[in-house]
Design a protein around this nucleic acid. Sequence first.
DNA 1: CCCGGCATAGTTAACGTTTGCTATGCGATC
DNA 2: GATCGCATAGCAAACGTTAACTATGCCGGG
Lengths: 357, 357
Amino acid sequence: MSPTGTPRKPSAAATLTDVAAQAGVSPATVSRVLAGNYPVSRSARQRVQRALRELNYVANTHARALAGVRTKTIAFVLADVRGPSFAEAAHGVEQEAASHGWLCLIGTTQGDQDRELALVRLMQEQRAGAVILIGAVDDDAKDYRKQITELARSLQTAGSLLVLCGRPPLDDDVPAAVIGYDNSDGAYALTSHLLARGHRRILFLAGGERNTTSLARLAGHRRALTTFGVEFDPDLVAHGSFTRASGYQLTRRRLLGDRDFTAVFAATDAMAAGVYTAATERGLRIPDDLSVVGYDDVELAQDLRPRLTSVHVPYEELGRTAARVGMAEDHQREDWPGVRLELKTHVVIRDSVAQLG
Amino acid sequence: MSPTGTPRKPSAAATLTDVAAQAGVSPATVSRVLAGNYPVSRSARQRVQRALRELNYVANTHARALAGVRTKTIAFVLADVRGPSFAEAAHGVEQEAASHGWLCLIGTTQGDQDRELALVRLMQEQRAGAVILIGAVDDDAKDYRKQITELARSLQTAGSLLVLCGRPPLDDDVPAAVIGYDNSDGAYALTSHLLARGHRRILFLAGGERNTTSLARLAGHRRALTTFGVEFDPDLVAHGSFTRASGYQLTRRRLLGDRDFTAVFAATDAMAAGVYTAATERGLRIPDDLSVVGYDDVELAQDLRPRLTSVHVPYEELGRTAARVGMAEDHQREDWPGVRLELKTHVVIRDSVAQLG
DNA sequence: CCCGGCATAGTTAACGTTTGCTATGCGATC
DNA sequence: GATCGCATAGCAAACGTTAACTATGCCGGG
């Protein structure tokens, strides 16, 4: 009734109650206009909408959440946003979330597992609808599994969900979703390709010795060797990290003496890029003098010359799927069946492998 | 007094009040133990801490925020997390935020300005302490400036702050911080380098016709031309987008007929990569037959062969600075002086430019 | 021996929404 | 013409914290 009646406290955001006062209705009515889940008369609705505009009302998520509305926020935690494969996955999560009107909370660990744990806690304080963990882990950390298991339970208790993405599952009774992709089979196929082209001595450039992704890729590699009846030579495995610099160092060292391999399987495309540099430095031409393959099929694989043969991993799809699972409503139920998905990979043949013999 | 007294409602997260009951104290005491800003007796503290652990208490940010505690959340909005320069900036924001215990809310626009506006609104509903907008804009959108100005004011009213990052400032009276970097001077320096090496006919591959970043870089280029007394030829500017594909297309088209330029200035490194491909396809060697330069100095610049001469932009620093400004406490004051910073760039000379004549 | 003050503790009123319940008016039905 | 029901509206109690007050006991000083 009093359009210019009681003036709001200056320089503070307008609340629902302010809007109600301005429109001459009760707060409940404003809330109903906003939610549209209850009949409101035409005239009241119009006055409310006018007041909403005039006061430039912005809803308060915190109050909403407290009052029991499910928060449309999904959290994800990864090692580093700059890694191309991580970025791809992050993009998938973000797109999927956005398409449902959800927002993303993000945190990075730089590979520190304690930081990861701390971040999950923080995300839980924010009452994120789900927490997605992306990327490999070191399989040693003793109480890491225990702690993450506790977190998973804790999240479930709070009506949230832990989604593990691209890392091995926890125990069966842990309430977490697992979205994986197939590292071992991809490596199997890639090594098979190398073997089919006549390579017998293949240097495998691995990541961290306990890194689960690295381990799985190495396992696939060995499996292919066995299938083709080629004996596995431990000397042909070098451990480093998933970086270009590491690929460079490892290769450089191996190229110092006599070369006893015709191909290099780099556990990631980034490492493969390092191999290129080291080989070029030594005057080796790819693929004529040395064949190289990578893994991940990030954009870089097409930028290298010759273009790199690699295994395509659907990182964006991985992120999308994780988000979809996290946003699903039914994981709140007591009898939720759990989710365990495995995405497929495939070899992309380009120009970095020579046919031998 | 009753350690196992009243059992909590099963399968719901423990609240402060639950903890208080368990420890036999009032909620206020628990809150004080948590905050550590008020004396609590040793015995009470210990009982509380025990209960905290037993119940696996996780604070509720929403309730805290409602009760008036400043939320330690910073939001940032960019076009796409996959772009390497964006990723770098995002990393900077995230690192800086994390080092102060803040969390990041993230949203991407895919270049859609309406989406950007909508995202800022969403972030405001979340009561983010600041909202950082990263990246260029199209300078045409009529009411875009008006709307973003309104948002800036609205954010300020709510005690938050709009931080514009790598895009031109709004009007002087708009309460927003602006963190820029120098596009025009960088382009000036880079074109000067080309001119100093004897190039006179330089094809400039620009981004969107109204893209502010592209426009600024083109302006610097023209300024250098003028300084060296070289007449600007509009025919030597081609507009596309900041992508590799666009760089490829634009170059390809120009290479069909007679070539009337000796160097290409690509407005981004990604476009330069496209130039490489198109040139190689035509059998042109870089830099012998054609010189190429880029802008941004992302990792890609070092992956290309020959390595790309480019302008280094401190994207990570840009993000860090934006976050720092956003998290500062004093921007809440009525008499906040505002912030307008400009980061420096510098040319990185590599192997993609030939000395002519 | 009384009182002022300090160290703790509890009480309670916010914070901004949502929502179940209750109240009101009015047209239709018997 | 009393009654029922429906379409609207408001009231008030949550939600989980914080912090300003208030209450209690105990100590030391006068």
